[in-house]
Amino acid sequence: MNNRKYLLKKFMQAMITIFIVLIFNYFLFRVMPGDPIRVLIRNPRISVDALAEIRAQFGLDLPWYTQFIYYLKDLLHGNLGSSFYYREPVLNIIMERVPATLILVGTGTIISIFLGIIIGVVVAWKRGTKIDIIGLGICLILYSTPAFWFGILMVMFFAVYLRVFPTGLMSLPGVAYSSLLDQFMTSLRHLFLPVLTFTLIYIGGYAIIMRNSVIEVLNEDYIITARAKGISYIQLLKRHAVPNALLPLVSMVAINLGFVIAGAIQVETVFSWPGLGRLMYTALLNRDYPLLQGLFLFLTTCVVGANFCADILYSYLDPRVKLS
C-alpha cells in the first residue's frame, strides 16, 4: 500500500468516526427523559401556546429524520444552536474559551511529554536499580492520583498556606496594570499552578510508556548490531533506542488526548480557569444541554482530528507503515 492510499484510508476512518459521533450526539440529547423543551425552559408555569411556539421555533414538531437533516445542515453552517444559560450561539461561546484551554493544555502537555521522555529514558537506562524502582513508584502514584485532588492540594499548599501564588482565575478582574511587563508577570503567576498540576499529573503516564518502550527497544537485535559497531552508549540511546522508542509515544500522545481533556476539565474547574473545561463544568451544573452537546461534539472532533494527524506523522516517521 502506498502512502496516499494509507492516508486516504485513515481519513475515511476518521470521517466515519465523526459521523457515528454525530448520530450518537444527535439522538443522545433527544432520548433524555422528559420533554427537552421543559428541561430547557425550566418554567413549570409556561402556557401551552407558548410551549408550542417554542417547539415550532426549535423545529421539534417535525419528524425526527427531517430534524436530523436540519441539524446536519446547521452544523455545516457552523450553527451549533444557542446556549440556554448564556443566550448566545454555542460556537461563539466555545471559540471564546479555546485560547485559555490551549495555553494551559499546550504548555502542560509539552512540558510533561518532554520531562516524561527524559525520566522514562533515565529510568529505563538504570532499570533494576533503586532509581528505577523509586522513579517507577512515583510515576505510578502520580498516575493513580485524581487530577482535581492534586490541584486542590496545590492550591492549599502554594496559594492558601504559603500564599505565593493566586488560587485561581487567569487574571485579576478589574485591576489596572502599571505596565505590560506587570501584566505579563501577573499572567505568569496565574498560569504557574494550573500548568504545574497538569504537568505533574501526566508526567507519570508518559514516563511509564517511554520506559517500557525503551526497554523493549533495548532488547531488539538491531541494538546489538549497533553496539557491535563500537558506538558509545550515549550514541546508542540517541541514534537508535530513543528515536525508535518514541514511535509508540506518537500514537500514545494522540490516544491520551482523551485523558488530557479529562485533565483540563478537572484542573480548570479547580483553578476557575476560563477555558473549555470550566465551561463544561458550568454547563453541567446549569444543565445547559445545547452547550453540552456542542462542547462534546467539538472536543470529540478535535480528538479525532489529532489522531488523524498522529497517523500522518507516524507514517512519515516509520517507513514500514506503508507496507502493512
Binding site: 457515528i20 427523559p33 482523551g258 489522531n307
Partner: peptide, 24 residues
C-alpha cells in the same frame, strides 16, 4: 471493531459527564 474504535477515540470523561447529565 469500527464501533470499538469509536469508543476508544471519544474523550471518555466528557462522554461520561454528558451521559450522566442526561440520564440523571
Amino acid at each position: 471493531m469500527r464501533l470499538t474504535d469509536v469508543f476508544l477515540v471519544i474523550p471518555w470523561l466528557p462522554l461520561m459527564l454528558v451521559l450522566t447529565a442526561i440520564l440523571g
